[in-house]
C-alpha cells in the first residue's frame, strides 16, 4: 500500500511542476481569482450598500422604537405620577367637600333649630297677645253690657220715678241755666 502511494506522487510531480504536484490548475485558479474579484466588486457595488442601508435603517428603526418605548414609558410614568397627583388632589378635595358639607349641614341644622325655637317663641308670644286682646275685648264687652244694663235700669227707674212735678222742676232748672 505504502509503495503504491509513493509511486502515484512521483508520477504527478513529474507531469506539472509545483502546481501540478499540488494538484492545482493555474489557469483555473486565475479564472477563479478573477471571478472572485468580480464577485467581490459586484457585491461591494450593489449588494453591500443596500444591505448596510437596510441594516442601518433597521437599526435606526429599532433605536427609534426603543426611544419611543422609552419615551412612552417615561410618559406613562409621568402620567402615572400625574394620575397619582390628581387622585391625591381629588381625594383631598373630596375630604374638603365632605368636611365642608358636614360643617354646612351642622350650621343648617343649628340655624333650623334656632329658627324653630324663635318661631315657637313667636307663636307663644302671639298666642299670649291674642289671649290678652281677647281678655281686653271681653272686659270691654262686659263693661259695655254692664253700662247698657245700668242705663236701661236707670231709664226704667227714671220713667217711673220722674213725675210731672219733678219734670217741671228739671225743665225750670234747665231754663235757668240757659239764662
Amino acid at each position: 500500500m505504502q509503495r503504491s502511494l509513493i509511486q502515484f506522487a512521483a508520477e504527478s510531480t513529474t507531469k506539472g511542476g509545483v502546481f501540478g504536484a499540488l494538484g492545482i490548475d493555474w489557469k483555473t485558479l486565475v479564472l477563479q481569482i478573477v471571478a472572485f474579484i468580480i464577485l467581490v466588486w459586484l457585491l461591494g457595488k450593489y449588494v453591500y450598500p443596500w444591505l448596510i442601508r437596510s441594516v442601518d435603517a433597521r437599526q435606526a428603526a429599532i433605536e427609534a422604537a426603543a426611544q419611543a418605548a422609552r419615551t412612552a414609558q417615561a410618559n406613562a410614568e409621568e402620567t402615572e405620577k400625574k394620575i397619582a397627583g390628581l387622585l391625591h388632589a381629588a381625594q383631598s378635595e373630596a375630604r374638603d367637600i365632605i368636611a365642608t358639607a358636614k360643617l354646612e349641614a351642622s350650621e343648617a341644622l343649628a340655624d333650623a333649630d334656632d329658627k324653630a325655637r324663635a318661631r315657637g317663641d313667636q307663636i307663644i308670644a302671639d298666642a299670649q297677645d291674642q289671649i290678652a286682646r281677647d281678655i281686653a275685648i271681653a272686659k270691654q264687652a262686659l263693661h259695655d253690657d254692664t253700662l247698657s244694663l245700668v242705663m236701661l235700669a236707670t231709664e226704667k227707674v227714671l220713667g217711673k220715678a220722674v213725675t210731672k212735678d219733678i219734670d217741671n222742676k228739671v225743665i225750670t232748672e234747665s231754663l235757668k241755666e240757659v239764662r
Binding site: 227714671l158 228739671v170 234747665s174
Partner: peptide
C-alpha cells in the same frame, strides 16, 4: 215724647 224721660229739648 216719653222716651226722653224728662227735661226739655229746645
Amino acid at each position: 215724647e216719653p222716651t226722653v224721660l224728662g227735661g226739655i229739648k229746645l
